[in-house]
Design a binder for these strands. Structure first.
Lengths: 124, 124
DNA sequence: ATAACATATGCTTATATGTTCATATGTTAT
DNA sequence: ATAACATATGAACATATAAGCATATGTTAT
């Protein structure tokens, strides 16, 4: 019976059919893989990490971010666009200024866990 | 006194000197940003996500990974190399085969939290 | 209306990275 | 020794992306 299922899921070339069947039965679906990828990609770029970390402390305008992080205005704006489309930050306009803040604390939580993890590795 | 510190840390161009000082005083150091970036980059690539997820279930050889994930052997091998240098997977040789497994449960924990997060978003 | 300013964005360039192909390395069986 | 096999790796190519420049958009003050 189990053999039958394995026969359906695997082809003859399999070296370890059971392993392959097991993986195939437990795979993440494509859209989950895609979303995970997008999320981690969003928080894997050094300048975006700095921006998110800064915003985790307080709401900031583009110009302040640029000045504080030593980036030029255009670069910050481009990265904020990426963070916006990943729904990680939101903003409100106040006159000429755009004040950005985190849209999603959860992602910063992930980032902080990453920080803990790395601090841990460094202690060793 | 506080004004003095701010004067040291900010230049005249600042639009909101206090914000900028605050960020500068609380910045992640460069090496942390770099390490975070490397770690998240390692788990932000679709094929690497699939590989890590598969390995989180059981030890697997290259060929099984390739077959189960529908990738060619070379692509898997290249990605395993990336994961190895990020110290996320380890392997042992057994005859012709190389059996890979996770080196670091913590990173998979991060991945799982990502999955929970996204599932949560999708429910809304 | 005009000037000064804050931000956004299209375009370009430089660089990074994933995949494939061909091949090298190392192992097992005959 | 040779053939078959599993894996690793170098080279080439295609694609993605970050950053800078120039400029557009929208706001405020005069």
């Amino acid at each position: 019976m189990v053999k039958e299922i394995e026969k359906d899921l695997c082809d003859e070339k399999c070296i370890h059919p059971q392993s392959i069947c097991f993986i195939k039965q437990n795979m993440l679906d494509e859209s989950m893989v895609y979303d995970l990828s997008e999320m981690f990609k969003a928080i894997s770029e050094p300048s975006r990490i700095k921006i998110l970390h800064a915003l985790s402390r307080r709401e900031l305008c583009v110009c302040d971010l640029a000045e504080a992080l030593g980036m030029n205005q255009s670069a910050v704006s481009h990265q904020l666009r990426v963070l916006r489309s990943a729904r990680l930050v939101k903003f409100r306009k106040e006159g000429k200024e755009a004040w950005y803040s985190l849209d999603d604390d959860h992602v910063v939580t992930l980032m902080c866990q990453g920080i803990e993890h790395i601090s841990h590795l460094k202690e060793k």
